[in-house]
Nucleic acid binder design. Structure first.
Lengths: 260, 260
DNA sequence: CTCGGTTTGTTCTCCCGTTCACAAACTCCT
DNA sequence: AGGAGTTTGTGAACGGGAGAACAAACCGAG
């Protein structure tokens, strides 16, 4: 039993939910609600109340039995635990469509993140004004990171240059990277890396959507009648994206040999 | 063990990785590589080779012992399993900065997703041309979903209107939703919902960053969020906002509560 | 045909995360 | 002051995923 400080080792799954709780608490606070039960907060956050209580218990015993949680108090405690009571300077590399959107995203600044630099490799973009920031050359990366003591970098470049940019960020001293490029990046130990891949999210939805369509049809699955590429190095074209039509038959074959 | 067709119940964690494998296979294919081992593919995907093999085993026994996997063959099998051999019409609601970026995102079309409608509630935006699409009124949502048989919707609106848009999408027949709005949405059973929250990802990084900064300082505890590099402007301790102050004085509290 | 080398598919174990259920603790009312 | 009613915090059971290890299966050489 912790007589004093709560254990600093917070499970990763819990850490991932703390920002959701924080957002829910801010919302409650803005609605003038001063106190809430674990059940109410859990509902607002979209999780189970038992899970919420266990998550909060990792932070300490904030909250009062028989009453619930003081919204402002808990909000501050979570914010402090996450670190958003501090000011985090951030650099965004790659100011395409996505980088553009990210630099304007209001949710960053309101959570303690301050975008201090926008970098792009395209000289044609240098000098372009975005809000109160100017797009600068990638060559200034190292100086800017050092000058502003930037610890967090966002990669929004094409996949081809993502690893290169990542390496430069790490070399310059960035120790946390958020990657939007559709590429697998590798970083040395001590550097945290998270990724957001928009098309992967859609593909996961597509998988479940396909299963649902299959279930309601009751019929065995079927895609367009394209032939399955053979198991030999034959560059067949499996794309075959056609107009929405009735599904054809599918050879549900997965054996690749015959038993001896 | 399954003597016949592979079990249709693929673990969620595996489903989430299949698009990564697919991307890695496409990359290998474009480099002219016809065959690869689980070790190579696992490296390209950034995962453990044992995990990769187990994941693939849920799909069936594609692959040849002693040889490896045929890149084109496996690529097609995964694409079919995910459902990206089909054509998925998608509607995007909320064409702000993010919606704008999403509508231009090349990764969607190349994965079988076809954006067929851009909707926004702001009349000033209606008629605006984005690529080969025109921003239309939200009032056309129901008709468009029915006409194109849209099953997947993307919400990129502000948080305040997200649930309302979500409800309309569901009512119109959409059964899979990707939510970018920073809000917790609720959907009826049978409707899949995934969320991408940009600021949450940064907050998770901030947590680890804070821990790293704390560890290098050697101060295990007792340091409030102010003793960090750079200048932290305003920790913004929430002044007791009203009668219900923080509950009883907490021993590990720093400066929050006034002694009752 | 047989043997050695290689790689997959699977099994087993361990660990993390989720959920249930309940004692402890606090408030309010009498 | 005491009891009834709530609500938190936590111990314990449960389920799923991750990783290591191994047997089965395939290719090629002699």
């Amino acid at each position: 039993m912790p007589g004093g400080a709560p254990d600093r080792g917070i499970p990763e799954a819990t850490v991932a939910r703390l920002p959701i709780y924080l957002r829910a608490l801010i919302s409650l606070s803005e609605h003038g609600i001063a106190t809430c039960s674990s059940e109410e907060l859990a509902t607002a956050a979209g999780v189970n109340s038992a899970k919420l209580r266990k998550d909060l218990s990792y932070l300490g015993s904030y909250g009062t039995r028989g009453v619930g949680y003081d919204v402002e108090y808990l909000r501050y405690q979570i914010a402090r635990e996450i670190g958003v009571t501090q000011d985090w300077p951030v650099v965004i590399v790659g100011i395409g469509n996505l980088g553009h959107a990210l630099s304007n995203y209001a949710g960053f600044r309101s959570r303690g993140f301050r975008i201090v630099a926008l970098l792009d490799s395209d000289p044609a973009r240098h000098g372009e004004q975005l809000g109160d920031l100017t797009i600068r050359s990638l060559e200034e990366l190292e100086d800017l990171v050092a000058e502003h003591r930037i610890a967090i970098g966002v990669i929004a470049t094409p996949a081809a240059s993502a690893q290169q940019v990542c390496d430069r960020l790490v070399a310059a001293g960035v120790t946390s990277i958020l990657n939007f490029a559709p590429a697998v990046l590798s970083t040395p130990d001590g550097v945290d890396l998270r990724k957001v891949d928009l098309s992967i999210e859609l593909q996961i939805l597509a998988y479940h959507e396909q299963r649902k369509a299959l279930a309601t049809r009751g019929a065995p699955r079927g895609v367009n009648g394209a032939a399955v590429p053979a198991a030999s190095p034959t560059p067949a074209a499996p794309a075959a994206s056609g107009p929405p039509g009735p599904p054809g038959a599918d050879p549900r074959d997965h054996r690749m040999g015959e038993p001896a």
